[in-house]
Simulated assay, not measured.
Amino acid sequence: MSVKTYRIHKPKVVVLGGGTGLPVILKSLRNQGVDITAVVTVADDGGSSGVIRDSITMAPPGDLRNVLVSLSDMPRLYEDIFQYRFKSEDHFLANHALGNLIIAAISEMRGSTYEAVQLLSKMMHVDGRVFPSSDEPLILHAVFKDGTTAVGESNIAKQRKTIDRVFVQNQHNLEEPKAARKVISSILAADMVVLGPGSLFTSILPNLMITEIGQALLETKAETVYICNIMTQKGETEQFTDAEHVRVLHEHLGQRFIDTVLVNIEKVPEDYMDNDRYDEYLVQVKHDFTSLRNEGCRVVSTDFLELRDGGVFHDGEKVVQELLRLVYERKRVN
């Protein structure tokens, strides 16, 4: 008697962003029985990444480094070596993360940051795929409500002005950026696309402002989920409600595309934040559930809060639990 075998298809989840928020979600999503693709911003021009991208024609490595580590099962010692940052008194190597230098070296060897990340993914036993949003370093431009402009991701928040819109250009030829290989096909084939958590204007939107990626988000049949920030950010989202975050995303792509918003409703204890260490964060994001629904979004509001080291973060396990519930619910319906 023949025995039929049934292939279980893993849900395909694409996560877009950058900064410190993206690795938190990816680390908790790893080993959860889903097919993960991380699409990482390449508009960072500060710190070690900024110095390297100005020295070598390559996408900035810092966010890519952190994402690779978050999806890797390499031993903790190897992770510590890859993440080691040289001391400030080390002059030439001051403040460079060793992993950034390794990514830079392989990018030069292979002539492509994309190829370097694919090679490192194999070496580091990454569970999933990691793609830079573009194979070229991008320059982020901001246009403020008063008509003035700022150039460079690290300069925008310093202006402390209300941002009207942002856009990106290739660093070296100022042409319209192109998405890296397999980014678009991954978005179009996904069951779920997750944006955030992360800086709205400097970590999330730089990906969406690559025209091909923005168009793919409008065309994909995937559930598109936005993880709203817990705190407002200095020079970016001051006084923003959760609905205003979503409104900005919709305005930048010219139509509504966010299906579901995850909103933390747990209160941050008064006087908890270490404001010297986390000086970019201001106050807790206020809620406007009526306006969120007017933006066409389903709202999932619960306790996603994690307090540690004097800072306010998303609890990766709680967020991923909700993402899994949503993606499996969608697969059952379809």
Rank of each mutant, 00 (worst) to 15 (best):
V151Y: 04
Q284C: 04
V263Q: 07
H172C: 04
T290Y: 04
R277Y: 04
I139H: 00
T148H: 03
L16H: 02
A157C: 08
T290V: 12
F240H: 15
Q233V: 10
G21E: 02
E176W: 00
L188P: 01
A150T: 06
G196K: 05
R30H: 07
F131A: 08
N229P: 11
R332Q: 13
L249F: 00
I36L: 15
V248Q: 04
R76I: 13
I265N: 10
M1V: 12
K4Q: 12
G47K: 03
R76T: 13
N170F: 02
N155Q: 14
I230S: 05
G47H: 06
S88W: 00
L208V: 15
I187F: 06
P269C: 11
L120S: 11
D315I: 03
E176K: 13
A216L: 10
G311Q: 09
C228Q: 01
R293W: 00
E89M: 05
H125N: 15
N207C: 15
L253C: 10
D63Y: 10
E115R: 15
N334I: 12
R160D: 14
L218P: 01
V67I: 14
G128S: 10
E219I: 00
D288T: 03
L16R: 04
M231A: 06
V333W: 01
Q255I: 00
M123P: 00
P23I: 02
K267A: 15
E136W: 01
E266M: 12
